[in-house]
Simulated scan of single mutants.
Amino acid sequence: MARVLHKEQSEIHVDYVNAPNQLARGSPSKNHTGKDRRKLYRLVGVSFGLLCILQIALNISLRLTLYIEGLSPSITDHYFKQGWVYFRPSFYYISSIKKSWQDSRDDCLRRGADLVIINSREEQDFTRKFHRISWIGLTLRETKGEWKWVDGTPLTKSYWGSGEPNDYEGKTEDCVEIKFHDEENSWNDIPCGDQNFWICEKTVAL
């Protein structure tokens, strides 16, 4: 009986002694998780800090560019707050809703601007970056048979998509949109009453 009792006591003792060891084995896992969390928080903090620094650098760079080009901060801030984007030598407004070509132009005129006139390859590449099918200021409405910009100048350099302009399916397609954004030749003619986003352009005097 004494042996049995001693054995039971021993087993009880062993179980008692081993219990903290099992807890101890579990604690490194918790500590490890805590360290992982601290590393993650540190990484997020560092990333956020780098983004802030990058944003500040971009703002300084933009302001320096505008200063060199003679644009005052008060003018640029005014346009930026209204959603305009600057690309030398003009400001551009990209709509968030769709309208017909004429209604789109009327909106630009109310803003003291007009639908965008594309004068260079650089400007053509710039307008494609917005990845929105958008009206531009090119039309046949005023002079049938001759494409002209909204300021009355004739089209000299074009960026028509393949097979355009074509009056597709016999439709009267007298207005132009930027459609094929992945291609340099991105223009497409469509009916002026269709609904599209649009791009306004405003040149600010230095």
Rank of each mutant, 00 (worst) to 15 (best):
V46K: 11
I53C: 04
L64C: 09
N59C: 12
A57F: 03
R42G: 10
G45K: 14
Q55P: 00
L54A: 09
L54N: 05
F48P: 01
Y41L: 15
A57R: 04
R42T: 09
L54E: 05
K39P: 01
I68R: 10
S47C: 08
G45N: 11
I60S: 00
Q55K: 08
S61I: 02
G70Y: 00
E69V: 01
I56D: 03
E69G: 00
L66H: 00
I56Q: 06
I53K: 04
K39R: 15
N59I: 12
L51W: 04
L50C: 02
A57Q: 06
T65H: 09
L58K: 09
G70A: 06
S47N: 12
L51Y: 06
S61M: 04
C52D: 13
L66S: 03
L62V: 04
L58D: 10
I56N: 06
Y41G: 07
T65W: 03
I53M: 11
G49A: 13
R42Y: 05
I56R: 02
R42D: 08
G49Y: 04
L40E: 14
G49C: 05
K39A: 15
C52P: 00
K39S: 14
L43Q: 15
V46I: 13
L66V: 02
G70H: 03
L40N: 09
L40Y: 11
I53S: 06
L66Y: 00
V46D: 10
L40K: 11
E69I: 02
V46F: 07
I60M: 05
L50H: 06
L40H: 12
I60D: 00
I53V: 15
I60T: 06
L71S: 02
L54V: 07
L71T: 03
A57E: 06
V44K: 15
F48R: 15
R63Y: 04
K39W: 13
L71Q: 04
L62H: 05
I68T: 02
L71K: 04
I56Y: 07
Y67C: 02
Y67T: 06
R38M: 13
I53W: 05
R42P: 00
V46M: 08
S47F: 09
